[in-house]
Design a protein around this nucleic acid. Structure first.
Lengths: 88, 88
DNA sequence: GCCAGTTACGCCGACCGTAATGATA
DNA sequence: TATCATTACGGTCGGCGTAACTGGC
């Protein structure tokens, strides 16, 4: 499971939009769509409901969102720790 | 950051050997080596010291190991949560 | 028509096993 | 020489942007 995909999903949910998440994370909307699709395929469940006005979590997505957010945060903390270690 | 790479590193450290981790995780030693290399490259620091008798954490590795372990565990928990959601 | 998401296409890079190589005891 | 790690090689798969497409307002 890739932390970047988790970050993509969390950001899309927070902003309510794939496009907005793409802009914020430096991807295209196409890329974000595929990241979320890949995450859903890996887990075997649908995480977000797509509408023409944006995206929202499904009930399954609500249950998993804390784990995915935690995973993205842990990756970020690991990177910061690595940067600190490198500075020493 | 890929949770599978974190699991590879944690397992290699626990078993003290890339080959043993490979056998346990269903990879070849070559694959484990590259996973660990990729993780180190992504973080920009060396995580484990290689000897001909096996592997051991560097001091940087000791500092980061909890994060990588937590990341792998969180991914595992997410998968279990997804499986539970699918069963409902 | 506009805006959001999706998909086809093509390129490039990542991944992994096999097999050969290096290093150490 | 036996064992562990690494690397070159080849095939395959995945990721990403661009551009074309679909659906709802």
């Amino acid at each position: 499971m890739d932390s970047e995909k988790c970050r993509a999903l969390v950001t899309a949910v927070e902003l309510g939009s794939m496009s907005a998440a793409a802009q914020q994370l430096g991807y295209t909307a196409s890329g974000i769509t595929r990241m979320v699709n890949a995450l859903e395929a890996e887990l075997g469940i649908t995480l977000i409901a797509r509408t023409s006005r944006g995206v929202a979590l499904t009930s399954d997505g609500v249950a998993l969102e804390p784990f995915l957010r935690e995973l993205a945060l842990t990756a970020e903390r690991a990177r910061q720790q690595a940067a600190a270690a490198k500075a020493c």
